[in-house]
């Protein structure tokens, strides 16, 4: 019944007569919003909470959606705000979260793509380091990286969602990848 309708039409129906039309919007975007929250926060439980709060907040503010922006843009904006709120909350509780403070003195060894280790432990450790590095990026750069890698969105889709020019999207992604590279640079191995 709702599958053929656009996001904007579903929002309109949810506001006027059928609140469950919003359920179709949730079904369409739940995976991507969950992925966005995971990439922004780095933890499954926090990502689940952030995504849940984002959808609830979106439902409660359906009346405030004026249709000037896309529903995807609106949802992403709400989700990123929820991620920042959760991160701020965790910081006040002094939880060890995504390490914003990069270990400046530590240089992390990352194997080149051609020599990927088969050891799962090393891979897991590397993933932890990458997670920390992504978490240390500025929000606008981090969001573009996550949307590209976790949501598998095209540059044009990211541009439409974030309502920024296409060249800005590419520029931010380039800068983010360069900063990640500097955090994950190769170090000489110790000779023991």
């Amino acid at each position: 019944m709702f599958t053929d309708l656009t996001d904007e039409k579903l929002v309109e129906m949810a506001v006027r007569s059928d609140p469950e039309a919003f359920g179709e919007i949730v079904r369409r975007w739940e995976r991507k919003i969950f992925a966005l929250c995971f990439g922004m926060l780095g933890r499954e439980d926090d990502a689940r909470d952030a995504a849940q709060e984002a959808f609830v907040a979106a439902y409660r503010n359906l009346g405030n959606f004026r249709g000037e922006a896309k529903v995807s843009s609106w949802l992403h904006r709400i989700a990123v705000n929820q991620c920042l709120t959760i991160k701020r909350r965790a910081r006040t509780r002094s939880e060890e979260f995504l390490d914003e403070e990069t270990h400046e003195d530590e240089r992390i060894f990352v194997a080149a793509a051609a020599h990927s280790p088969s050891n799962q432990t090393e891979q897991a450790e590397r993933n932890v380091l990458v997670r920390q590095a992504v978490g240390s990026l500025p929000v606008d750069l981090r969001q573009v990286v996550v949307m590209k890698e976790f949501e598998d969105m095209t540059f044009q889709e990211i541009s439409d969602t974030l309502e920024i020019p296409l060249s800005t999207v590419k520029s931010r992604l380039y800068t983010a990848l360069k900063q990640l590279r500097s955090k994950l640079e190769r170090v000489p191995m110790e000779i023991g």
Partner: peptide, 18 residues
């Protein structure tokens, strides 16, 4: 190559944990 390494790290993190 530098950009590829960064992208690979994020890709593997997504593949393994998400």
């Amino acid at each position: 190559a530098d950009l590829s390494v960064s992208r690979l790290g994020v890709y593997e993190w997504h593949r393994d944990e998400f």
